[in-house]
């Protein structure tokens, strides 16, 4: 079971636009909410109203400053969840067979009934995408909302991940990244989508669209206004002539 499929028919995943993400955490909470109502054990919280609240989340949004040194730093909001890697080390290390990758679409899942909560898969994941539920003590991770995307109880348009549906800025896109003609592949292609930590050899499916260069960071020669002082009669001379033409 924990051997990876030779190949998958599709590679479903997310494309996350770092140029658009405003860091609002909507995806974080909607993910928590959906995964408390659907797949497997609900996501628990320890000490939820106490001095050290700590719960399981499958998606978390970091905020970074990127400092080019010679210009103002920019701020990038960075959502982090499972990348559904093609060469998922989290799957192959799993001793119980609980971790697996679906052959039909490449989604990496945990079969919670088999999980003994050893945590090794979380260690194996370079991206911190797996968290042990503090109450159920089984491994939790992004399911790519496998319980939404084909769910006949949901209207067709809602068969997308909860985080994608919720994201107010439209910074999250879902689709088949193995199909070069899919909208997500094309978007990633057009915007130079990157894989995280390629050196880890995990071959992630998800792509991140890097922030576009900002105009305070590129030396564009902006347009300049021609001033009217040189015109006869100055401002009011111009005014009269222009009004005539109206």
């Amino acid at each position: 079971m924990t051997s990876l499929p030779e190949r998958t028919e599709k590679s479903l995943g997310l494309v996350i636009d770092l140029d658009t993400c405003v860091g609002c955490h909507a995806c974080v909470v909607s993910c928590k909410e959906w995964n408390s109502a659907a797949y497997g054990a609900p996501l628990g919280d320890l000490d939820p109203y106490g001095a050290a609240p700590e719960g399981a989340f499958l998606n978390r949004v970091h905020t970074y400053e990127v400092d080019p040194g010679h210009q103002a730093p920019r701020v990038v909001h960075f959502p982090r969840s499972c990348l559904h890697c093609a060469d998922a080390p989290c799957v192959t290390v799993c001793p119980t067979g609980a971790s697996w990758k679906r052959a039909e679409d490449g989604i990496v899942l945990v079969n919670e009934d088999d999980c003994m909560g050893c945590g090794l898969c979380a260690w194996a994941c370079p991206y911190g995408a797996r968290e042990l539920d503090p109450i159920e003590n089984v491994m939790k991770k992004c399911t790519l909302c496998v319980d939404r995307i084909d769910n006949p109880h949901l209207p067709e348009e809602d068969r997308v991940p909860a985080c994608v549906r919720a994201c107010p800025a439209g910074a999250r896109h879902f689709g088949d990244l193995s199909d070069p003609s899919s909208a997500v592949s094309q978007l990633s292609e057009a915007r130079g989508g990157v894989a995280l930590m390629p050196e880890q050899g995990t071959a992630p499916v998800n792509r991140y669209l890097p922030p576009r260069p900002k105009s305070d960071q590129i030396d564009v020669l902006g347009p300049l206004l021609t001033q009217l002082e040189e015109e006869p009669g100055g401002f009011f001379g111009w005014l009269d002539r222009t009004l005539e033409r109206l």
Binding site: T63, Y64, E65, V66, P68, P73, F78, L196, M197, P211
Partner: peptide, 17 residues
């Protein structure tokens, strides 16, 4: 490399998630 923000300057955590 972790954030895919290579070549844009030093990446620092401003706020944890």
């Amino acid at each position: 490399t972790a954030t895919g923000l290579a070549g844009r300057g030093e990446v620092r955590q401003l706020e944890p998630p």
